[in-house]
Design a protein around this nucleic acid. Structure first.
Lengths: 275, 275
DNA sequence: TTGAGTCATGTTGTCTGACAACCAAACACT
DNA sequence: AGTGTTTGGTTGTCAGACAACATGACTCAA
């Protein structure tokens, strides 16, 4: 996977120079493009090890090379490797035992879920569509549970966010904060902390695109206005305790966002090659 | 949050001794109970900082104390703090800029979703129920998409897992591997990599309870048998391209697991106080 | 021969000190 | 006043060292 002269330092100029002084310089022009900015050796080391684990370079339960060996093979120092290993351990992908070594953890031990970096053949929009689809599923389910389990406090919180968006709409100001709060309040009304936390996590992946709903362009196209009527309908269904309807409304609300993305993908495809 | 004498080293004997030699000993008998086994200073430091971030000790965008300051206040060295900060950065909770410092990141930057450790007032079973409910939502949605998008290769993979479980059932052996593969194959048939990855992540949280379906007790109660007819129905719906039915079947399949948990919770509650 | 205890070696966990790269604000100069 | 420069502080990285621990080899007695 790594040729001798292909070390991390290649993309980090100052380190490369230091290595050059030591007679360990790597020749330029290898497979590594500087486009992906690792910005830190540890980031890069983490990426590499992560990749090697993905492709089953070591079997489950097998012992990884020692920190020293890894450091040498990647051309960095032990602290850098330690930081990378620490992250892998935090993700639950490896386990380390003092005095013994680092071992590939059982796949059934994953402790964290990360958004997969979009595959090379995917555009950003396509990756966003996938996340949006997942969000659609989870939020619709959360809305259904919310309709069944919401109490008065939940309704008040949801209504407050709704009114916040309402007044933002009247004054044509940014209502994205209340938009966030609205979806989050519904998720909490499901009285399932895992669902609530996951909805918030997914929502966080959309901080940019959600703002686009509330900027000048969004107002111009009327996205915010349409979205608000969706929100009102969802609230009504939840307040009425109509789980099926809340689910349906929430589903179609996110569907609009998916449709917008699909349009963007279509236009991107038709103008492909200009970049 | 931390009194002067309340350092991490208090719970790590050998370090405490080293500190004692240096005249920096912390007195024992403080608020720290040794029940939570940090096992590593970095783990503990990560936990503390994580907690402090949770309770908004620093506002978003605010600068955290320097690594040296943090190290001193927690009674550990800089590498330990660096490892903890590295994990926080990997989670997207802080951002560090070389030469400037570490800053609290916008909440909308969370890069990883972790299963929340069950709250103290919750039993294990209740926490498991919450995850199961989330799984129900996502897997049902995945099954629906799978029915709409599956191709021949997908069907073959699902069928292979189904037959694996079938023969395991006949020989009363452990079919949990095929069980895993079955749900995973359906998720992949949705042709949404985010959904596929998340389903696998959720499935990983159930390695234990899934095995319980396939052990002697599971066979005795007939869980595996009932589950298998569920699986067959789900496969049939997906093969037929009937999204609504696939969704319904998948939903009720997980519902059985939820019902079992509910029963366990009920019996646990009735025998409470014996521990 | 076998078993248990001991020891040597290798590995991770942690500390210390040092320097490079970098940022931000105070400072000096025009 | 505005602009370039310097200076101190902070993170990123390296190197070396030692402690804690795990593992296998080795020794010695039964």
């Amino acid at each position: 996977m790594l040729s001798d002269n292909q070390t991390l330092s290649t993309v980090l100029p100052h380190v490369a120079r230091a290595l050059a002084d030591a007679g360990l310089a790597a020749h330029a022009g290898n497979g590594m493009n500087a486009i992906d900015r690792p910005s830190s050796l540890a980031d890069e080391a983490y990426g590499r090890l992560s990749l090697q684990l993905d492709m089953n370079l070591w079997k489950v339960g097998e012992k990884l090379p020692t920190e020293m060996a890894l450091a040498e093979s990647l051309g960095v120092s032990r602290p850098v490797i330690r930081e990378a290993l620490a992250r892998l351990r935090a993700d639950g992908r490896i386990e380390t035992r003092q005095g013994a070594g680092a071992f590939v953890a059982d796949r059934n031990k994953l402790a964290a879920f990360r958004m997969v970096a979009q595959a090379k053949h995917q555009s950003d929009a396509e990756a966003e569509r996938e996340v949006l689809e997942l969000r659609q599923i989870v939020e619709a389910g959360a809305a259904e549970l919310a309709a069944q389990r919401r109490n008065d406090a939940d309704l008040i919180a949801i209504r407050a966010a709704l009114e916040g968006m309402h007044s933002a709409l009247e004054q044509r100001t940014d209502g994205s904060v209340h938009d966030d709060a609205f979806h989050s309040a519904i998720a909490h009304a499901s009285h399932n902390s895992q669902i609530a936390k996951f909805v918030e996590f997914l929502g966080a992946q959309f901080s940019d695109s959600r703002k686009a709903t509330w900027d000048d362009i969004g107002y111009g196209v009327g996205i915010a206005t349409v979205g608000q009527s969706d929100h009102a309908a969802i609230y009504k269904a939840i307040a009425a305790g109509d789980g099926a309807k809340a689910k349906r409304m929430s589903h179609s609300h996110v569907q609009r966002a998916i449709d917008r993305i699909d349009q963007r993908i279509a236009t991107e495809k038709s103008t492909k090659g200009n970049v």
